[in-house]
């Protein structure tokens, strides 16, 4: 049995929208286990979101329309991105909407508006969060693009479908360039999704928070949307990493059996990826903000080395 591409597209949408909280919850559980704490349960994010949807909204007096508009936009753009990255099948109709550069820029929109929303209320925290977020982003973005360019050079394309199918179906070759690029990508993903050692998603301590500082004033369904979008973003970065660096097992068409196989492969890769991240998060301490340039600089260095290795060694 073969599914129509649009069905696969919808399936993927549903998968990401529905399972992103579960994935985030699972990461949390894993982290608690590793650190020897009691885990809240894998479904806790769902419960949080539902609770937030039920709550009333409390708005600051001078919040403008931009403040209220941002959660919807954040969610919308993240959802669009969810439709673009090939997860289980290469044959996605929406995938051609944006190539990988455009995808990075889509995340850029989210960041841009979240940062603006952080400044809308006019508290010092929001401004601080926005300022730091934009600083980190501006340092992370070149490294991100370099890492992705390395893969693009190898697959001769910036289109995600193309990259995935080239990577998935070429014969096995040791590529040091991709190893470097992957290392760089992991560092950047940590920074972009606000994980340790760049940011601590669990903290609300004034001086260390970055992302949380921007959305401090949100409540109710706005907060729910932003949280949900955040979980999706985390999952999407995993998906992007998987798609760009290890897409083996992905289905080329709509064959159900292959799709199921791809789903299993994806699940396995997500599990492995989450474990790696949890290990990194547990093993490292949060960096001081002014050590971050060095962290991101090393990501850039790795990405550049990847590109150099591509030209020198391959």
């Amino acid at each position: 049995m073969s599914l129509h591409p649009f069905v696969i597209e919808l399936l993927q949408f549903a998968l990401l929208l529905g399972l992103a909280p579960a994935f985030a919850g699972w990461v949390k559980v894993l982290k608690c286990r590793v650190q020897g704490r009691t885990a809240p349960g894998i479904l806790q994010p769902y419960r949080d979101i539902r609770r937030l949807f039920g709550k009333d909204i409390v708005l600051a007096e001078n919040a403008s329309w931009l403040f209220r508009f941002t959660p919807y936009l954040t969610f919308g753009v993240t959802a669009i991105a969810a439709g673009i990255i090939p997860l289980i099948s290469v044959d996605l109709p929406l995938s051609a909407t944006a190539d990988v550069i455009a995808l990075v820029m889509l995340f850029g929109i989210v960041r841009f508006f979240t940062a603006l929303a952080g400044m809308d209320i006019g508290t010092a925290f929001g401004g601080m969060g926005s300022s730091r977020e934009m600083t980190i982003a501006s340092l992370a973005e070149p490294a991100m693009l370099m890492a992705i360019f390395t893969v693009s050079l190898a697959s001769n394309s910036t289109s995600l479908t193309q990259m995935v199918s080239v990577m998935a179906h070429s014969e096995f070759v040791i590529r040091p360039s991709l190893a470097f690029a992957l290392a760089a990508f992991i560092l950047i993903a940590l920074a972009e999704t606000g994980r340790i050692p760049v940011d601590n998603p669990a903290t609300h301590l004034e001086l260390t928070m970055i992302h949380e500082a921007m959305i401090l004033e949100y409540s109710g369904r706005h907060l729910a949307l932003i949280e949900w979008a955040g979980m999706m973003k985390l999952t999407l970065f995993f998906a992007l990493g998987i798609a760009a660096f290890c897409p083996w097992g992905i289905a080329t068409g709509g064959d159900t059996g292959l799709l199921l196989l791809a789903l299993v492969a994806l699940a396995a890769k997500l599990v492995v990826g989450a474990c790696i991240m949890v290990l990194i998060e547990t093993g490292l301490a949060k960096l001081r903000i002014f050590r971050l340039p060095e962290f991101l600089g090393s990501a850039f260095l790795l990405a550049t080395l990847g590109m150099i290795a591509f030209f020198i060694l391959e």
């Binding site: 960041r111 501006s138 992370a140 973005e141 550049t304």
Partner: peptide, 23 residues
Amino acid sequence: PLGAAMLALTGALAAACFVKVFG
């Protein structure tokens, strides 16, 4: 391609700058 990284830096910094302006 290293130039592309600089262009990316430019774009990201421009975004930061206009968050500042508008904000």
